[in-house]
Design a protein around this nucleic acid. Sequence first.
RNA 1: GCCGAGGUGGGGUAAUGGUUAUCCUGUGGGACUGUGGAUCCCACGAUCCGGGUUCGAUUCCCGGCCUCGGCCCCA
Length: 411
Amino acid sequence: MIQRPRGTRDFLPEEMFSRRKIEEKLREIAERWGYAEISTPTFEHLELFTMKSGESIIEELYTFKDKGGRDITLRPEMTAPVTRVFLNELKSSPRPLRFYYFANCFRYERPQKGRFREFWQFGVELIGSDKALANAEVIALAWEMLKSLGIQGDLRINDLSILREKLGHLSQEEQNKVLRMIDKKDLESVREFLRGKMEENEIGGLLELVNFRGSYEEAGEIAEISETLRELCELLEIYEVNYSVDLGIARGLDYYTGVVFEIYAEGLGAQNQICGGGSYNLARVFSSIDAPSTGFALGFDRIMEICEKKAEISKPLVLVSTDGVKKEAIRLAMEIREKWPVVIDVMGRSLSAQMRYANSIGAEFVLIVGEKELQKRKLTLRDMRSGEQVEINFEELLELLDKKREDRVCD
RNA sequence: GCCGAGGUGGGGUAAUGGUUAUCCUGUGGGACUGUGGAUCCCACGAUCCGGGUUCGAUUCCCGGCCUCGGCCCCA
């Protein structure tokens, strides 16, 4: 048998149903905050991602040549595509622009818990501002989304300009290299790398910073805190977001400019980051247009793993019919479907076999239609739980189903 | 790319270097042509793939693939 490719998953109806529920919730919140959905192609020119992150990431991309010889890749993330859309068609729109997306992305990596080769990200991008107001809004939105799902994450924020200033005398490239080491918490390499480039006590100070984690006030005691970070912290208080300042968060990416943040959650093993984001200026990388932005991406699959809200799929009404009345049964099903999901027998089964089927799929109700019912212009509705059975006409049936629906909404 | 554990019907399992691979569940049909859940009967359905050792491999060995956990990486 043909297996599914490594690192991919099949989602069966039950799981798909809960995924949709969660997705809907996230959408709803994004829209309430004034973010509008955007969708981009599943594949893009390879260049879009190599310009952003360098050639080395090709290792982790699904790339191929199309029949015209173009270098194409499956998207590994959504920030670059959204920036491309902005530059292609929206660069003269009133700012700020607020977008959200829910998209499958692809990375050729070793699968493990919470990491797949095809995975889903739910993210937002706020294009046009790098003010603390924008950072705070985006962080608060991420917080709100997780909160609505009952997830209490560990949110850590930082301002890269603090570290960059300490490294001010190094070249941009060297700075990025150090930030990468810091992101990986490889402090030995940092010490090694900086030896000779900085005073020994300066290096010590830097490493102390990187290890710091605590409140904004405490951070102020050991470092020159940027105005942006100060403002951001004040705003987050107003948004009622729980956070800590972690001067060691670096997010290994060259184009992050100022505020960065990550959210971690329990119960995920090694891959415990469920959200990452910050302010960036990717438009500058692709063009001469200046568009400071801020955004985040939620790891949708990891979120699904944590919030095990098993929503139950509502079962359709099973319309059971006898041999002689199949056409009438179909007409009836069509009418009821305007109000309620209905399935009919397509196996050519006997009445008792149809009943057995209804029972085995856990149907709540069975509607029985046969010659007897047709003659009396009635329908037989059986409650499969209680076993009670009533004869009613079509209008009464619809009323009953309406009432049933209301009960369900109340649940 | 690296390390460790594992892979037997759709799901869960037993066993074995040698006759037809066990049991539970499932699915289809029947007992039961106007009423489900119980019971009984019949049927369907598996040793991940390739190579090696062997008279004979599902079993032992090697490689691959896949899953799980960890490392690396995570733009």
